[in-house]
């Protein structure tokens, strides 16, 4: 466990040193503030569009941050040859994967805290109140959801050598699931065989990242998700992450280091 935590700590330090988080945060804040500056018939209490823009930017930033940071971990270690040193020490391949995953995921969590604090400030500035339960559910579900893209990108980095191709493919898959995932079964019902069965299979196999997107509930001030379902969603993300990481470890175990 110590080795995993040390690796994770190193990943977080590296991500703090890099500029990705800051650039994404500044972009999100800037675009939100530009939207906030719009004059909507001299009414300063209009807030939902701002919340939606801000949350959408946070979601996009979350995906970009999670995938790009995870995709470069293994290739960077291989390129700088520190991978050999690490694995020569008493660090198993499983621990290496787990440490890298934990570091990326925790760093994403820290970044999300900053992003959601900004979002809370934007909402508070116009609404004068913040639905704390909804806010807590949004950030926790978002963070658990990001575990899946992080795991996918780590697994992808064992299949594709270049971090750029891995990032692009993982982002396409993640955005595709986020935007279209929940409609696949409906579309499949209207298709002829065997396409219907194939699409239904895809629907049941993919991790449904869109389940974690409760932006509509937050933006339109709906009551929070029942806590039992919230817990179910977190377990769903954990299960998929576990499966993907196991797959990544199996791949990594058989792969020659050079």
């Amino acid at each position: 466990m110590r080795a995993i935590l040390t690796l994770a700590h190193l990943v977080i330090l590296e991500m703090v040193r890099r500029k990705d988080i800051y650039v994404l945060f500044v972009l999100t804040a800037l675009l939100t503030l530009i939207a906030a500056a719009a004059n909507i018939f001299d009414d300063t209490r209009v807030v939902r569009y701002l919340k939606e823009i801000s949350l959408t930017l946070i979601w996009v930033s979350g995906f970009v941050l999670a995938v790009t940071s995870a995709a470069r971990q293994i290739p960077a270690e291989r390129e700088s040859r520190t991978l050999f040193t690490l694995l020569a020490k008493p660090v198993s391949r499983w621990q290496f994967i787990a440490g890298k995953f934990l570091g990326c995921w925790l760093a994403c969590g820290l970044a999300l805290l900053v992003f959601y604090a900004f979002f809370g400030a934007v909402a508070l500035s116009r609404e004068r109140s913040l639905d704390l339960a909804g806010w807590a559910q949004a950030i926790s579900m978002h963070w658990f959801m990001l575990a899946v893209p992080v795991a996918l990108a780590l697994a992808g980095s064992l299949l594709w050598a270049a971090p750029s191709s891995n990032s692009t493919l993982t982002l396409v898959v993640c955005f595709g699931i986020w935007l279209l995932g929940r409609h696949l079964h409906k579309v499949a019902l209207g298709l002829p065989e065997p396409r219907a069965t194939l699409l239904t299979l895809v629907y049941f196999i993919i991790p449904h990242l869109e389940l974690f997107d409760i932006r509509d509930l937050i933006v339109h001030r709906w009551p929070p998700v029942p806590w039992l379902f919230w817990l179910g969603a977190l377990l769903y993300a954990a299960a998929y992450t576990g499966m993907i990481l196991t797959g990544a470890w199996l791949l990594f175990r058989r792969r020659p280091l050079n």
Binding site: R182, F204, H208, L211, D213, D216, V225
Partner: peptide, 9 residues
């Protein structure tokens, strides 16, 4: 999945 997902919309 559809039934579960409706709790979040």
């Amino acid at each position: 999945i559809d039934a579960f997902g409706r709790r979040f919309k």
